[in-house]
């Protein structure tokens, strides 16, 4: 009998700890599938963040380092400069990349470091219990914006891809969402493309993935998927934000 669906070799045989309806599990699998399909398992090095994505090293069957909160792009820079022939990517959340790690991400992008950032944007600090993230939408309720995010005192949601797009070191920036089968397919393609940019040494690549967090959004998984389409993508439009010829 022909096997039509199986666990990618780059994923360990382990149960995800993610909440029901969370996007991380889908994204982990997509990355593993891309690594397998591009034949990169022996070359890939992942830098894990602090936050819900921290435990990816329990799932990825590739070399992985856990970085301090926000420092992923700096650590990945150190690894890549020593091992230019490896595929080096950091896996970072919105708090990690767009708040505490802004400087590290921004300057790695500006130097055109040949690394890839997988940026999971779910608009909240998930692991710590749903506090406001830099990407939390206007009026969105979180545990630290109990009456909704007020831009006057709490600032505006940060569009990371657009900010990075003006930096000359970046070569591929795309925003996708994992809330539908077609979105999942596009996400997989975007990850593969970003890795290809790294392999071709074109420049810094980043894939921003809008990802549901039903637990902290206080929604059902189905409602979360819908909310991404109806609300989140208005602030974070999907598509290729920047692409330099690879």
């Amino acid at each position: 009998m022909k096997k039509i669906y199986t666990r990618p070799a780059s994923l360990k045989e382990a149960h995800f700890h993610y909440c029901p309806g969370c996007g991380h599990g889908i994204i982990n699998r997509l990355i593993a599938e891309v690594i397998d399909e591009m034949g990169l398992r022996g070359k890939a090095i992942c830098v894990a963040p602090a936050g819900c994505g921290m435990l990816v090293y329990n799932y990825f069957d590739i070399d992985t380092l856990e970085s301090a909160h926000g420092r992923g792009a700096a650590v990945a820079t150190g690894i890549k400069r020593v091992r230019p022939d490896n595929l080096v990517f950091s896996y970072q959340g919105d708090g990690d990349l767009a708040a505490i790690g802004t400087a590290e991400g921004f300057h790695a992008a500006n130097r055109g470091e040949l690394i890839t950032v997988i940026f999971v944007n779910n608009g909240v600090y998930g692991m710590t219990g749903g506090q406001m993230a830099p990407t939390t939408l206007k009026e969105q309720i979180t545990t630290t914006t109990p009456s909704g995010r007020n831009p006057v005192s709490a600032g505006h949601p940060v569009r990371v891809c657009e900010v990075f797009s003006v930096l000359d070191g970046t070569s591929y920036l795309e925003r996708v969402a994992v809330n539908s089968p077609s979105g999942i397919k596009k996400t997989k393609k975007a990850i593969a493309k970003a890795f290809q940019h790294q392999i071709n040494r074109t420049g810094f690549s980043l894939v921003e993935i809008l990802s549901p967090c039903p637990t902290n959004w206080k929604m059902s998984p189905i409602e979360s998927f819908r909310w991404i389409d109806e609300v989140m993508t208005k602030q974070f439009p999907l598509g290729v934000i920047k692409e330099v010829k690879c």
Binding site: V47, A74, G78, I79, K80, V82, R83, E104
Partner: peptide, 9 residues
């Protein structure tokens, strides 16, 4: 952190 990355590499 770059030192840490280079060291782990």
């Amino acid at each position: 952190n770059m030192v840490l990355g280079a060291s782990v590499a």
